[in-house]
Amino acid sequence: MRALLLVLLILVSSPALAQVRGVELRVPRAFGYFLGDLVQVQADIRVDPGFTVQRASLPKPGPVTYWLDLRTVSVEERREGDATLIRLRLTYQDFYAALDSRTLEVPGFPVTIESGGKGGLTTATAQIPAWKIGVSPLREVQPERRDDPAEYLLPDGRAPRLDPQPATVTALGLLALAALALVPLARDRAWGPFAPRRGRPFALGLKALRRVKRKAEGEARTREAFLVLHRALDATAGRRLLADDLALFLTAHPAFRGQAENLKTFFAASRRAFFGRETEAAARAFPVSDVEALLVRLAAAERSA
């Protein structure tokens, strides 16, 4: 019986309660409750406009009687025509272990409604009436005699077999996605194929030097050529290399140790060209052709390293 059953309709018209126009209780069914069942109740209270329910007056979730617990209480208020409808939704739980079918009374309770007007606070009480539910036993009082007490237990209900197919497909799909996500991660972390290849600064320097030779003339040419070699050395060392750092650089990059003497001459010449105001002497000590030859040898060492 799924239809809502109108249990009770009370219309009270005493002057003191004039503000409460009516209280209506609705339950899905009035009977057929077993031990542990939840009992849903809906209480509609119609009141004069401007009245609201006083939250503190609502029953608190907890035991109501020894066989009944109140689980939840919720309130909603809305206008309906010229009245305000206060709807309480109550969920009880029945703990009565019935031996036969019987009717039990759920106690009622009062709810205070209030209206804060100019003249002060007006309160009134709406009485939610007691109502009855029919409870039934779960098992027979005197079951058939059995030898094995375990047989008193009924077999478990049969659960349907679950199909693992969709779960497997989903798992495989997600696995594939995870594997795909590795690609951007590897790119971000420069793993595997994304690892940066060791640059070849000296080979690049050679190219740059050829450009310099085409473009620059005279002192500028020497300086530019020196700069090309400096930048290639900086790139190889990973930092700016000064003349005094040459020994450290050769320790860190033993591949270029064969060119130690040439590099030393170069740094001395570069110092004079840039800081000693002797570009000409520097150009004689270490001409552009020497820079190129040194770059060629360094590039060769770089490839074999």
Binding site: F226, L227, H230, R231, D234, G238, R239, R240, L242, S270, F274, F275
Partner: peptide
């Protein structure tokens, strides 16, 4: 700073 600023 010294690793970054080029000289010369």
């Amino acid at each position: 700073v010294f690793d970054t600023v080029p000289a010369p």
